[in-house]
Every structure is written in C-alpha cells, then in structure tokens.
Design a protein around this nucleic acid. Structure first.
Lengths: 255, 255
DNA sequence: GTAATAGTGTCTATAAGACAATATATT
DNA sequence: AATATATTGTCTTATAGACACTATTAC
C-alpha cells in the first residue's frame, strides 16, 4: 500500500487506491474528549481565546465532529477526517463504521454515504486516490460508555463545525458538503432525532433543528409540523427535574 | 486487471477494483439506434408483442436508456450499464463521460454522480468491485449527429425504463435508484429542460415532467409554477408549423 | 403567587390544485 | 366558422409563519 516507492510509470498503471472517510456529527463533544480549537490545544488547555467553551457537554448550538491528526506524509501533523483503506472483506459502510468505532469508541446512530471524491492528484502525488465519504450522526446515548477505547486518543480531538483547523487533502470540501447535506430539509427531517437519546421532548428536538439550521424556530409551529409528520410517538412519560411544567417525552417511529 | 487468475489469498489482499457505470436517460432513443424490448430484438425487428413502438423518435412518454451487452464473464451475453475501469489520468466524471461518448456517440447535456456501490462479492467472485455510478441526461440536441460513432454498435441498444431486460451485477438496483432520483422533485426541477433542445415551449417542458413522473400535469398550473421559478427566459420567438395557436419559445437561464 | 416553559388557538400570506374562460393560430 | 391548443383568471384547499393566549409544574 505504500505507493510512494513506486516509479512514475508504475504509479500510472497502478489501479486507483480506495479509502473511506467519515464526517461524524454530534451536538457536542463526548464526555472527556479532547477539544480542538482550530489551533493546537494541550490536554486540558486553559482559557485561551474567546472561542473555547469548557468541557463536558461542550458548546451545544452547533454540530461537532471528530478529527484525527495524521502521523505520516503527506500532510503529517495535519488534522484529517477519520478513515483509511478498505479491507477486502468489508463493505464500504462497514469500513466506515469500523473506522468510527476506532476513533470515537462507539458506533454512530446513523450512517449514510455522502459522495465519492476522485479527482486526479488528490493526494498531491502521482497515485490516484478515490475517497468514498460517509456521513454519520451520534446521539446522546451513542456517545456514553465507549465500548472500545479509542485508538491513540492523543491524536484525536473534537471540533466545532464553526471553528475547524486546516484539513488535509480535500477534506475541507468534504466537510462543507456534509454540512450542506445536513441542512437540506427533506433529508434531516427524518434523521434529526438521532442526535438525541431514545426519548426526547419536542423542545429538545427543536433545539437540534435550530443547531443544524443556525436559526431560531417557533416552538408552536415546530410542534405542529413535527407531530403532523406522524413519526413521533407519545411515550406517555414526561420529563422530570425541571423547574416548570414538564414536557411529554416522545420517541421516533421507525417506519 | 484479470483478477480471475489470482489465487484466493491473492484476491483477498488485492485492493478493490474501481469502475464507473452510467445510467443515461433520454426521452426517446436516438435516430437509428437499436431498440431493445426486454428480450432480444433483431436489427429492425418486426412488430412483435404489444409493447414495441416503431423506431425514429421512439416511444416518448417514458425515459429511455442505453445498455451494453457484455462479451466476457461474468455475465457474458447479459445487458449491463455502460462503464468500465478508471484510467489513471481521468477524474471519475471524465471517465463516465468518455464511456458515454463511446456508447452513445455524444456527450450528455448533464452528468452527476449518483452513488458508490461496493458490497462484498458484488461481482460474484472473490475480487472486490466498487462501482461509482453516474447519472446522465441527453437532450434532443445532444443526440443528433454523433461526433464519434459508437464503438461496437451491434452490442448497444436503447431500452424503455418501463421494459428493461435482466441486468448484470446489481445494475438493476442502480437503475432503480437513478429513476427514483430522477423523480425527486427538488432535483429535477432544475434539470428537466436538459431533455429538450436549447429552446422549447412550456407544453414540451410539461411533457418532460409528465414522462418523468408518469402522471398528467395541469397545463395552467404548470405554467404558473414554471415561470415563477425565474429560470425561464422568453426568447420572443414562437413555435411554427402547428395547426393551432403557436406557443412562445423559452430557454433556460443558467444561474 | 411568580417564573418559566409546555402546549393551543387563530390569523395571515403563500403555494398548489381544479377548472372555467378567453386568445390566437391553422384549416 | 370549426378546431385545437395556448394562455389567463378565479376559486378552493393546504401549508407555513407570526404571535397571542392558556395550562401546568416548581419554587
């Protein structure tokens, strides 16, 4: 797989290499995760600029995503999307999911193919590289109690989609496309609930939409529209521990 | 590229092969093209069953697409989507377009990536095959006067999307997905005009929508909606040669 | 009671669909 | 004039958004 040793003519006849990359969104970084701030932050960096919010359920309000710092050329030391080559016995989706388990420590609640990127010279060398990009969503419950600890956690950090560092390859384009896709209404209407746990209030679901769209949404109209879809089921339970009228809890009806 | 000679263990370590396939839609078969009828038809077969309409601007009303009969195993003799491996110096889109030129004899008016298919064992053998599927539209003007004559025309035929033969690999799934995509309203609103020439009447554009959707559309309402989009420009010219009031000719405003 | 958010009602503006009516060409 | 389709007008219904109002809990 080390194509850098090949001669120019060998590179020309070698078949293109294939890899998957994954843009994994969550509404906040997981507990205890390393947080990136578009520059370089220490393991628990003090209050640097104006941007960084403190840890824990970090900075809701925008989508966050995990990145991996590359250890090899090209782009050694630069942040990149989780991903890698495709083993012979995995489907594309399986390969994306395994990569995410190794990076995040858990499987996403939703996974969907995004696009195949395959321009000539994408890698900056002669060897062709075709990247099948995937799009993943992590809900609250998907991020608790990592089954497998992340591999090399020191090279993994979560970033707000608002404040991304420089990215390797054309990964900035891929993230931009993933964000656009996330905001396409017809698409996210059926997946927004995956940012949450199994049950949720309409206010929680509304805040997911607000985070995705970056705008405020009228609670009354949102309620009507969300319920009219017929995808939400009233569980009969209500929220507890609030200092006001508790809200009904709903769950999503799969089909 | 002949992976069939490899041993099982060699196949397991070989990187997946990559190919492009293209689903190319037009509103009828081009002049003089071979027409398929889900079975096997001679060069200008007589009136067989109820289905086959006669040649020329064949059977409007549904989308048509070109298929290629495979000459090698696997699936020798079976119809398949145009496509093939990706040369080292082509982007994915370039590869799809070149394949279509070789099959149809002309470049499509529109080309867009559809999806990457990459299940294990897609080819029925050990070797992995990842297919990047493309989606193309040919307009009336795109099909006249083929610049390059099709390669091996005897193995190429056009089929109505209604009456497809058995297809190789998982190409039936790919066509089904392409048809679904074609019918998604938000997508086709901006591309339907590509089935037509540079100028067209609103009735022609409406018939494209009817063909895609498979339903009738109210002329009055369609007119209002189409004009309200702001994408149509009145050329000032009108249709001629009709036996009734001539319609205004419009063209599409790019951007 | 007060505060705070859950949840309902209502009004308006906009868009979609059904369908009648009018306009303008050919024959 | 008869015919056929283009083009316009109008009515109804569905939907989205703004926003006032009521309900229910914690404190």
């Amino acid at each position: 797989m080390d194509y850098s040793r090949l001669s120019a003519s060998e590179r020309r006849t070698a078949p293109p290499a294939i890899a998957v990359s994954a843009v994994a969104f969550a509404l906040g970084a997981p507990e205890g995760a390393e947080l990136g701030d578009s520059g370089d932050t220490g393991p628990a960096g003090g209050g640097a600029g104006a941007g960084a919010t403190d840890a824990g359920e970090a900075a809701e309000g925008t989508p966050w995503l995990p990145l991996v710092r590359r250890t090899r050329e090209p782009f050694a030391g630069v942040w990149a999307l989780p991903g890698g080559p495709i083993p012979w016995d995995e489907t594309l989706a399986e390969s994306a999911e395994r990569t995410l388990r190794a990076t995040v420590g858990a499987s996403p609640g939703y996974l969907e193919q995004l696009y195949a990127f395959g321009d000539v010279e994408r890698s900056g060398r002669g060897q062709r590289l075709v990247t099948i990009a995937y799009w993943a969503l992590y809900g609250e419950n998907d991020l608790v109690a990592p089954a497998d600890p992340p591999v090399e956690p020191e090279n993994i950090a979560w970033f707000s989609a608002d404040r991304l560092p420089e990215l390797a390859f054309d990964h900035a384009d891929i993230v931009e496309y993933a964000l656009w896709r996330l905001r396409m209404k017809t698409e996210y209407a059926a997946v927004a609930h995956r940012f949450l746990g199994g049950t949720f209030t309409l206010a929680q679901l509304r805040r997911v939409h607000e985070a995705i769209l970056g705008t405020e949404v009228d609670p009354a109209n949102f309620r009507r529209q969300a319920l009219a879809q017929g995808h939400l089921v009233d569980t009969g339970d209500v929220e507890t521990g609030t200092r006001h009228r508790p809200a009904k809890l709903y769950r999503f009806r799969e089909r």
